[in-house]
Design a protein around this nucleic acid. Structure first.
Lengths: 355, 355
DNA sequence: CGCGGCCATTAGAACGATCCAAAAGTAGTC
DNA sequence: GACTACTTTTGGATCGTTCTAATGGCCGCG
């Protein structure tokens, strides 16, 4: 007998729907729906009955169905050019944290810095109907193509990089950028205050907008202090440690050699340290340098690296906030937010040796 | 006149549906649907007509609606205990890459190592109806609670850590783990081969399963070589650089002091290097050590760190593959996959000084 | 007793796709 | 021209929810 011995809350059967619950406690589907959404309309007593039934049957809400009917969305797409990079990983964690609190779920997409993959990822994500998109574009990505992939319906928040090409006016795309220029200016001013006069700008590549902005900040500070800039004090490298170490030699080809360098970012600065050590020059004592980003390692290098903290996790939270605000006012004018960076002074940026 | 001057493909109007397309080119909704799915049933000529209309109206597919009707899913949830950690960020990138190729989208969730947040994140994600879940559990997470949150319908792939408690038999949850024990054994054997006899196991905490497994591998190698293990050669720390640097002193409180250490992971090993330097002991020359993980920094530390490469991106791809396989055969027996790790010998693990 | 007002509940049509069974068109055969 | 066989197209029900408008019950009031 007793064929139905198991009435477990987590049965293996098919999915439980509102109809099952309604049937289970003799009310209509609509009432159950009202209970789920905490409507004040439903009677205290029936509410209790329904809630009991929900629990008993192990009901799980089908948000996709609800979204379809309500023509809303409860997801946000996050498309990053390089998820493996700790900077973006932290950023993603910040985004997810804030979106989660707001009841949204994060759809992830990683483009590996390829414009083609970016297109593919965007068109795939858009089919899931996200309420908005947070995009850190791949290098060389153009506004027109992104717009074609996502359509004009879905708000986009651009992070970290500008898009090439230009955007029709009707697309209100907000932007969140880092204050690269001011950051590099702060670093340069700091080195100048330490007494340095011959300061190089080391690493990075002129193609990248962030590198150009940082270089501009350096130039600005040097000019403001009335210090000359020798052309050979601009050394371009890949944004990697290896290439920076290699390019160290170029820095000392110039005579008179610089006594300090503002580096494009931390990776480059750490590479330069490597190169300096190989030449018997002790970074921080014989030569001062600064980075940009404040990666975890910066605090632990030898010597610890003076750098600009960008707080990527906070930037992620901020990006999410900005997009949520846009969802509230779809027709508001597009905004541009420039996040401040803060100078973290450590031991790599000492005063010049007074030999 | 000319009120309708713009017939742009990206109009600002409401969403385009199958009905719009059908009306637009005088066929039925069903036919358009067949075209979309590339059915061979539809006539070449009408197909062309429909495709033209799709393009012209800028149609975007509503996958949520399709999934509702078909009772399928096109998303996978990825829940990580610590997204900010580069190891998991790389893992996530690998997962997303493979899922994307298979036509799935990644729903992201980050738990910040909190069991409560893990519960919240899981119940939120499950409402979006993912086809499966890849979970790297928070420390202390228990099988029963996870099962309660996700239900028995949705396949789960456990990565990197075991769950506490136990799982009912009907839940076929696969597991992908790292071969922690073998890795630590390889590192220990390598140090032994270099001539070391007094080898410590440094860092990490006994609560964590990965730490216990690595310690077991170390013990195994020492026993196999007939080498003694002094109790004071087991130093516990937080898995952070800072705490490892602090704990360096403990290592040399033991007499006779060890000449080498197998470290719990790279962070701890790099911290130990810091501590050694502070005591005037040169790592790699005066004292040998190994890490675990092969973080980017390991290759660039001074000296470069001998460690175990886990290739987190490949693990991500592998995890995705395993879950996709499970989706194909929901009733197959649960599998456990142990991913191999490879020893990368660098300069931190030199022979003992023959003073 | 009839009426308006309030509360709690509900039937039934959406949302945008897919599935099914059946219909319409086309052709060939007797 | 009626039959079968095949290709192509289609109406309508359906997935699990929400929304709208309407229902029925109950109360008090004139």
């Amino acid at each position: 007998m007793a064929a139905r011995t198991m009435e477990s809350s987590t049965s293996i059967r098919r999915k439980i729907t509102l109809n099952d619950i309604a049937a289970g406690c003799g009310v209509s589907r609509a009432t159950v729906s009202l209970v789920l959404r905490g409507s004040p309309l439903v009677n205290k007593h029936t509410r209790a009955r329904v809630e009991e039934e929900l629990r008993k049957q192990g009901y799980v809400y089908n948000r996709a169905a609800a979204n379809l009917r309500r023509r809303t969305s409860s997801s946000i797409a996050l498309v990053l050019n390089e998820l493996g990079n700790p900077f973006f990983a932290e950023f993603a964690a910040g985004v997810d944290e804030t979106l989660g609190q707001a009841g949204f779920v994060t759809l992830l997409g990683s483009t590996g810095e390829s414009v083609e993959r970016e297109q593919a990822v965007l068109s795939s994500l858009i089919e899931h109907g996200p309420g908005g998109i947070i995009l850190s574009p791949a290098e060389g990505s153009a506004a027109e193509r992104v717009l074609a992939a996502v359509g004009a319906q879905t708000p986009v928040l651009l992070f970290n990089r500008e898009l090439g090409g230009n955007l029709p006016e009707y697309a209100h795309w907000d932007r969140l950028m880092l204050d690269n220029q001011r950051g590099a200016r702060l670093a340069t001013e700091h080195l100048i205050a330490q007494g340095h006069k011959r300061i190089a700008f080391f690493g990075g590549h002129g193609d990248s907008s962030s590198c150009r902005q940082r270089h501009a900040g350096y130039v600005e500070a040097m000019n403001a202090a009335g210090l000359p800039i020798a052309p050979r004090w601009r050394v371009e490298t890949l944004p990697t440690r290896m290439d920076a170490a290699r390019a160290c030699a170029d820095l000392f080809a110039a005579k008179p050699a610089p006594t300090a360098a503002v580096c494009y970012n931390d990776a480059v600065a750490l590479g330069l340290m490597l190169g300096l050590n190989q030449r018997g020059i002790q970074p921080g004592r014989d030569f001062a340098l600064t980075g940009f980003d404040d990666v975890a390692e910066a605090a632990f290098s030898m010597p610890p690296l003076t750098t600009l903290a960008t707080d990527p996790r906070a930037r992620g939270r901020q990006a999410a906030q900005l997009l949520l605000a846009r969802l509230r006012k779809p027709q508001a004018d597009a905004t541009t937010t420039v996040a401040q960076v803060t100078l973290v002074v450590r031991e790599s940026s000492g005063a010049p040796r007074t030999t």
